[in-house]
Computed example of a mutant assay.
Amino acid sequence: MKRYLLSLFLMSTLCFAVVPERVSNNIEKDSFTKDNSSLYVRDQNRAYNRILSLGKKEGLSEDKIDNEVKRLEKKYGTDYEIIYKNFYYNVKELSKNQKKAEEIRKINEEKKEEYNVLIKKNEMPSDIKEYIEKSAESRYPDNYSERVKYTEDLIKFYNFIKK
């Protein structure tokens, strides 16, 4: 029985060793107001550990995780189960936005190459070509998809007038 209790004690300290002192102090302060404080402390520690594992799974650094937890603590207090739920949705939204931004960046790179080919292959006077390039660049400085559309329209217009 002593071995069992000792192993249980060691396992519980190993499970909660990841929790920073700031978080542990918050949990301890709140546990005094709860009826079953040992269960409350256990649940809060588990919730915090789930926050850490989710953040690491999504590729966030410990600093980013800690900053997000601090931000959520200001908003929701020190109930880490509630913070975990909000952290989960925030991380999923952040991950979705990062994937979307990466897609847009990739498409923009492809369109940049297409834009360069479009400008080079057109046979028109250099002053008109230069005007089209400057106009497209000033209207759409970072959006090559729109720049390609705009340049194609100007080239079509030039060819229409030329005829």
Results as ranks from 00 to 15, higher is better:
Phe157Tyr: 11
Leu60Glu: 03
Ile82His: 04
Ser24Asn: 13
Asp35Lys: 13
Asp79Arg: 01
Thr151Met: 11
Glu28Pro: 05
Asn159His: 14
Tyr84Arg: 10
Glu73Pro: 01
Asp127Gln: 05
Asn108Gln: 02
Glu110Trp: 06
Lys75Asn: 11
Glu102Tyr: 06
Ser37His: 09
Tyr48Cys: 07
Lys92Ile: 13
Tyr80Phe: 14
Glu21Met: 13
Ile65Asp: 05
Arg147Cys: 10
Val69Phe: 00
Ile128Thr: 06
Glu93Trp: 13
Tyr40Cys: 07
Lys96Gly: 00
Asp127Leu: 05
Lys106Cys: 00
Thr78Asn: 06
Phe32Val: 07
Tyr80Ser: 02
Phe87His: 13
Asn143Leu: 02
Tyr150Met: 15
Glu68Asp: 04
Lys74Pro: 00
Lys96Tyr: 06
Leu94Ile: 07
Gly59Arg: 03
Leu154Ile: 06
Phe9Gly: 07
Ile132His: 01
Asp79Lys: 02
Lys162Glu: 11
Met124Gly: 03
Ser12Ala: 12
Leu72Arg: 01
Ile83Leu: 08
Glu28Gln: 13
Thr78Ser: 06
Asn49Pro: 05
Val148Cys: 08
Lys96Ile: 05
Leu94Ser: 09
Met124Trp: 00
Pro141Met: 09
Ile128Pro: 01
Leu14Asp: 04
Glu146Ala: 09
Tyr158Thr: 10
Leu94Asn: 09
Ala47Trp: 01
Asp43Cys: 07
Lys57Met: 14
Ala101Arg: 15
Ile132Glu: 04
Glu123Arg: 10
Ser12Gln: 11
Glu28Lys: 14
Tyr150Asn: 12
Met11Asn: 13
Phe9Thr: 08
Asn122Ser: 03
Tyr140Met: 11
Tyr115His: 04
Thr78Gly: 00
Lys162Asn: 11
Asn49Trp: 07
Ile128Met: 10
Glu28Ala: 13
Gly77Ile: 07
Glu81Thr: 14
Thr151Cys: 09
Pro141Tyr: 09
Lys99Asn: 10
Tyr4Trp: 03
Glu109Gln: 13
Thr151Ile: 10
Ala101Lys: 15
Ser7Gln: 13
Asn86Leu: 11
Asn159Asp: 11
Glu62Tyr: 05
Asp66Gln: 09
Glu152Cys: 08
Lys34Ala: 03
Leu118Ala: 03
Arg3Leu: 09
Asn159Trp: 08
Ser138Asp: 12
Gln98Phe: 03
Asp66Val: 07
Glu152Val: 11
Asp43Gly: 03
Val18Pro: 05
Leu60Gln: 04
Thr78Val: 04
Lys29Gly: 00
Ser37Trp: 03
Asn45Phe: 14
Tyr150Leu: 15
Lys106Met: 04
Tyr140His: 15
Val117Asn: 10
Gly55Ile: 02
Val91Glu: 07
Ile51Asp: 04
Ile82Gly: 01
Leu72Ala: 02
Val69Trp: 00
Ile155Phe: 09
Ser31Cys: 07
Phe32Glu: 13
Arg139Lys: 12
Tyr131Ile: 06
Val91Gln: 11
Asn97His: 12
Val69Gln: 01
Glu109Asn: 11
Ser31Asp: 04
Phe87Ile: 14
Ser135Asp: 14
Glu123His: 05
Val91Arg: 12
